[in-house]
Nucleic acid binder design. Structure first.
Lengths: 201, 201
DNA sequence: TCTCTCTGACACGGTTGCGTGTCAGAATGC
DNA sequence: GCATTCTGACACGCAACCGTGTCAGAGAGA
């Protein structure tokens, strides 16, 4: 029967704050690694080293690398959802305007951090993340059908169209972020939005 | 100085035929593994075992697992290209008809072999294959712009549209093959074609 | 000062896949 | 019948990453 150690302040910081500080460092280190070397470079060891910590602190915050990757993707997708929701609030009930606002929110969020752009592009590259990506694509398709187009999300034809547009947009935006499309940000948003409008019921 | 061994018939088969027979077995085994357990299950060991051979024969035909995977994907994409080319030959110069023929050829080729359908869906899942997938998406986008739409492949706006449609179609078809879209094959082809027509310049 | 916690470094055993090497026995050519 | 090739099985050492354990020294509390 060993009693758990009494937690103690250290360098003026509480145990709880130290822990969450280390977790934050690990998350940042994980993002840096994704940005520089891709998802496959994220290991318990490399993340800890990048964070200036040791492996043991990796396991303090994450059960394994997949949990960290999930957390990174969840953060990203959550922020994108929030950005889109905010953009739609206060946008008039005109389909064209709503589509543009949605696309712009997506592009702006991803363009703000190249590390996250790469993470977004590589969500298909890892077994554990692919599942999450599928959910996200479904979520975005639903959002497009209901909140943007005001359509019927049970109509299989609309569902196919929404899914195609969402997946296609994901690819095109990733491509643009990687510098492979010779368009300004405004042109990208305008073109993608035009496609959305052309396909709106 | 050792001289290379003199090749000899074995069980009535020439050395060359034995070699290519083993290679064929390995390719089939690789496809089976992709179909059953996904791209990540393809290793030198597992493929050889699945083929009823041993690792040593894997390395006789392939330098490493990536070479085999590349070969599988090249086969698949080549067959798709051929199927589309054949479909376009003898299809009238009507944009709608050409789009339908292209989509149908793609869907039919993939639907003919569920193992290849999964391979197609997972080309994004592996570093070595992602490069090849990028090339293929570019090739298909080019084919769409030039051979189907008779458009100008240097126009960045058309390029974006083509890329979005190709990537979106890839995703939707994979999704349908996985049974996640409640549509008949004809409906799938019709819906995707309709999207193509709606976006044709 | 004395005790206990906290930290960071490193060791360890386990697993998986890699690519090479060895070898006995079966099959062949002569 | 004899030498040689071919096959299939297995052994090996290597590398990466895993998850856990140990420990000395720095830092805090009283």
């Amino acid at each position: 029967m060993s009693t758990p150690p009494v937690e103690r302040r250290y360098r003026g910081v509480s145990a709880e704050d130290r822990r969450s500080g280390r977790r934050e460092k690990l998350v940042e280190a994980g993002l840096d690694l994704v940005g520089q070397r891709g998802v496959s470079a994220v290991t318990a060891e490399s993340v800890a080293t990048e964070a200036g910590l040791t492996k043991r602190y990796f396991y303090e915050s994450f059960a394994d690398r997949d949990v960290l990757l999930r957390a990174l993707v969840d953060d990203l997708l959550g922020d994108v959802q929030v950005a889109i929701a905010e953009a739609l609030t206060g946008t008039p009930d005109d389909v064209g305007a709503r589509i543009s606002a949605t696309v712009r929110a997506l592009v702006d969020t991803l363009a703000a951090d190249p590390r996250r752009a790469r993470l977004y592009a590589e969500t298909g590259a890892h077994d554990a993340l692919r599942t999450r990506r599928e959910e996200a694509l479904d979520d975005y398709a639903m959002l497009l059908m209901v909140d943007v187009l005001r359509g019927d999300p049970t109509d299989p034809h609309l569902r196919l169209t929404a899914r195609l547009v969402v997946a296609g947009t994901t690819d095109v935006v990733s491509h643009w972020l990687a510098g492979d499309l010779d368009l300004t940000r405004d042109e990208l948003v305008a073109d993608v939005s035009a496609i959305g409008v052309a396909l709106a019921p």
